[in-house]
Amino acid sequence: MKFHLIGRNLVWFTMTLPALIWIIVFKYLTLAGVWIAFIDYKVRTGLFASQFVGLKNFEFLFSTDTAIRATRNTILLNALFISAGLVVSLSVAWLLFEIYASRFTRYYQTLILLPRFISWVVVSYFVYALLAADTGVVNSVLKHLGIAPISWYRTTQPWPFILLAVSLWHGVGLSSLIYLSGMIAIDMQLYEAARIDGASRWQQFRYITFPTLLPLVIINMLLALAYVLNADFGLFFQVTRDQQLLYPVTDVLDTYIYRSLIVTKTISMAGAAQFYQSFVGFILVIVANAVVRRIERSRNESLALF
């Protein structure tokens, strides 16, 4: 190699060092931590001297109802969020697209994106303002209508839908903007031609917008499915105010792992649940990506994550 290239490479390598060291410590050394799932972890003996117990932790984990329940809740709620999220964000994107030329659209976009940047703690404050038993807005409205108020934080049944509403409020802004940017990229002449042929707005959506967006939709769905065992800790911990009464429908793997690790300090249990979540997640991501690759190859576009 030429001398100046070696010099350049040395400088470049030096540049990468701070971030590279950070990545090695936080992302690679932590990988050793998955070993916790297979040992009887004691703080005193640490990661390497604690006793190896094989699959005991997993046997124990899956003999508890809590872990099964957390898995079921995570998958079912994610399925609900993913399907409702798709319909709502596509609709919102389409609405925004219909008025994209208007100068108001910028402001609409900003407001719809805003909830994404409110911390979950503050979200839990206003959900409380809506749902508080005596003073909440929802119960005030119910009283007004002559319906008996509901003690929301003690009633399990409505919570999947409350969480869905909050999750949509929080996430639709972003996903609809992603679909919107896909729609803007469509050649406008297609629409001109369709209009000349007398196509209605719905027909334009049905036969131009939707088919063009379909690969993007499929890819987003696949990636969402790859993360089906992961839940947003903030949503489930803060918005429910960590109410134990609600656990039967709101406890997910992330809240279960947090509780086992930090509250009840059953670290081996947390480790086993964590390994199972990460490992299944990893496999799902690989599979999803392979499928995306397949689609991509057939369409000659680059869409996959890696």
Binding site: L5, R8, N9, W12, F13, T16, L20, I23, V25, F26, K27, Y28, L29, T30, L31, A32, G33, V34, I36, L47, N230, D254, I257, Y258, L261, I262, I267, A270, G271, Q274, Q277, S278, G281, F282, V285, I286, L305, F306
Partner: peptide
Amino acid sequence: DFILRTPISFMVFFTMLFNGGLVPYYIL
């Protein structure tokens, strides 16, 4: 021209695929 471009890029990529999660991070 950066000779470590591919291996380091892959190291960065891979962290997006496998997430050790809360437990190993907490112990670290």
